[in-house]
Amino acid sequence: MDQPKRGGLLLRTEAGLRFLPASLVTSVAQLPPILRVAGAPEGVLGIVHENGEIMPVVAIGPERTVLMVCSYLGEPIGLVGAEIVCAGLFDPDPTAPEALMYQGEIARPLDLSAIYTRLQTSTWASGWTS
């Protein structure tokens, strides 16, 4: 039986083609000015104000053009650093149910939970409190 198509965003990162499900991506926007935060964990570029919300911006690569606004467990997270390939509905990879196929290439899911966990467990401004 054919598996249903899955909607979301395909990204080109340094690690290859990645997929963000539509349920996690709120919107895509031009990168607004990033306010740097002293003592932020590694990979966090700072915070931005986008569409009425303030959110941390996490770098997943060197690109600095587009901000992908995600929502994980009700909290907004901004991602930058990937080239957006396209948005839409994609066929799942028959060999790996969590992955997708796009023009013969496998797109693995971007691990947003790991990014969120890192943000939650990292100590902000640890150098100041010691």
């Binding site: 909607g7 979301g8 539509a22 991506v25 957006i84 396209c86 509905l89």
Partner: peptide
Amino acid sequence: LNAGLEGARLGE
């Protein structure tokens, strides 16, 4: 892109 995402959310 945002319209594409919206379309993806609406389903096939």
